[in-house]
Amino acid sequence: MHLEGMVIRPPSEADSILLQVTLGCSHNKCTFCGTYRGKRFNIKKDEVIFEDIEFARKYCRRQTRLFLCDGDALIIPMRRLVPILERIRDRLPWVERVGGYANTKSIKMKTDEELALLHDLGIKIAYMGLESGDDKVLEAIRKGADAATMIAMGKKLKKAGIKLSVTVLLGLGGRKGSLDHARETGRVLTAMDPDFVGALSLMLIPGTELFDQYENGEFELPGPREMLTELGAMIAATNLTNGLFHANHASNYLPVRARLPRDKEKTLELISLALDGKIALTPEHMRAL
């Protein structure tokens, strides 16, 4: 496989074939993210992508899922993305699901009909970084879209039959904006009604703008109890049809996995017990990105 630089994927794609079709992120301006800072965004050449598909045909026959890397595969124009998906379908017929990251820009560039076609060609799930439902936070982190756009693009993916997995970041509103960030994020999640929500806790990365803001005293990072309070407020404000809300990433202080609305009250009780000191939180040295 021709994998260049650091390659990341969602936890749920741990056993997937990783096919790198783009380098970097088409946005790459978020103040908290340092993942693709060393990569200039571009789409890889078809011959390289097709060579990697042939490699997967020989050596990845036990993996039934495939993930399109890097940061935003959906940005690829249809004239190139369709042949890639057709090649995956023809050469890797055992692959049951293709997934990839998507942002509002790339979703907006595709028509409803084009997204439906991509679904038919194998893209069954898209991972979207909401981060926050609070417009003030979204502007501060230079996300490139407001909450209304996030909602509209999330619904657009779901309309095409593509499952929607949304990531949010606890702590991104800082100490003063913590509860507003939580409640507004819950409001937006309710409006989007994703199939999956993954809540991560903010970990500041040296070299990013947000880290510099923290060092300069311009941003206050909430502590463990504040993060947990924020998580409770977010879940309380989130009403999903039948979505899975999980906060069991290694960055989190308390592992949570809840099917909403079924498990909402039980989960809020769990968080309350942790805040009362009756359940131990993950120590700092065991947290990781």
Rank of each mutant, 00 (worst) to 15 (best):
residue 270 L to I: 09
residue 244 L to E: 10
residue 268 L to P: 07
residue 280 A to N: 10
residue 256 V to K: 01
residue 241 T to D: 14
residue 271 I to K: 04
residue 271 I to T: 04
residue 250 A to T: 06
residue 259 R to W: 13
residue 239 N to Q: 11
residue 280 A to F: 06
residue 261 P to N: 11
residue 255 P to I: 07
residue 272 S to F: 03
residue 244 L to S: 06
residue 246 H to P: 00
residue 279 I to A: 09
residue 273 L to D: 13
residue 272 S to G: 11
residue 281 L to P: 06
residue 253 Y to G: 06
residue 250 A to Y: 00
residue 259 R to Q: 12
residue 275 L to E: 06
residue 276 D to R: 14
residue 249 H to W: 01
residue 258 A to M: 02
residue 262 R to C: 02
residue 275 L to C: 02
residue 254 L to F: 03
residue 256 V to M: 02
residue 263 D to Y: 02
residue 276 D to W: 06
residue 278 K to E: 15
residue 243 G to K: 09
residue 265 E to C: 05
residue 269 E to Y: 10
residue 268 L to M: 12
residue 262 R to K: 13
residue 258 A to T: 02
residue 262 R to L: 14
residue 252 N to L: 01
residue 271 I to C: 08
residue 259 R to I: 14
residue 265 E to T: 12
residue 273 L to F: 11
residue 257 R to E: 14
residue 280 A to I: 07
residue 275 L to P: 01
residue 239 N to D: 15
residue 256 V to S: 00
residue 242 N to G: 14
residue 275 L to H: 06
residue 253 Y to N: 10
residue 247 A to I: 00
residue 245 F to T: 00
residue 276 D to I: 01
residue 266 K to M: 13
residue 266 K to T: 13
residue 269 E to K: 15
residue 264 K to H: 07
residue 255 P to D: 06
residue 240 L to I: 07
residue 261 P to K: 10
residue 243 G to Y: 08
residue 281 L to H: 04
residue 249 H to C: 00
residue 258 A to V: 04
residue 243 G to W: 09
residue 264 K to N: 04
residue 240 L to E: 03
residue 250 A to V: 01
residue 281 L to I: 05
residue 261 P to C: 10
residue 280 A to E: 14
residue 268 L to Q: 08
residue 263 D to N: 07
residue 252 N to E: 06
residue 251 S to N: 08
residue 245 F to C: 01
residue 278 K to I: 05
residue 261 P to S: 11
residue 266 K to F: 10
residue 241 T to L: 12
residue 243 G to D: 06
residue 277 G to E: 08
residue 259 R to C: 09
residue 251 S to Q: 08
residue 271 I to M: 07
residue 253 Y to I: 13
residue 249 H to E: 03
residue 256 V to T: 04
residue 268 L to A: 08
residue 240 L to K: 03
residue 242 N to L: 12
residue 274 A to T: 06
residue 260 L to K: 09
residue 269 E to A: 15
residue 258 A to D: 02
residue 265 E to P: 01
residue 244 L to G: 01
residue 257 R to V: 15
residue 257 R to W: 03
residue 241 T to V: 10
residue 239 N to T: 11
residue 278 K to T: 08
residue 249 H to S: 02
residue 260 L to A: 09
residue 278 K to H: 12
residue 256 V to W: 00
residue 248 N to T: 03
residue 265 E to F: 06
residue 275 L to R: 04
residue 274 A to N: 08
residue 240 L to Q: 05
residue 252 N to K: 01
residue 244 L to F: 11
residue 276 D to V: 01
residue 267 T to I: 02
residue 279 I to V: 15
residue 252 N to S: 00
residue 276 D to G: 08
residue 273 L to W: 12
residue 275 L to M: 05
residue 273 L to I: 03
residue 280 A to R: 15
residue 278 K to P: 05
residue 262 R to D: 14
residue 264 K to G: 05
residue 279 I to E: 12
residue 277 G to C: 11
residue 247 A to E: 00
residue 272 S to N: 10
residue 242 N to E: 14
residue 269 E to M: 11
residue 240 L to S: 05
residue 257 R to L: 10
residue 259 R to V: 15
residue 250 A to G: 01
residue 246 H to S: 07
residue 265 E to S: 14
residue 249 H to G: 00
residue 246 H to D: 05
residue 259 R to M: 13
residue 254 L to W: 02
residue 252 N to C: 05
residue 262 R to T: 12
residue 247 A to Y: 00
residue 248 N to G: 05
residue 279 I to R: 12
residue 246 H to C: 09
residue 270 L to E: 09
residue 265 E to I: 10
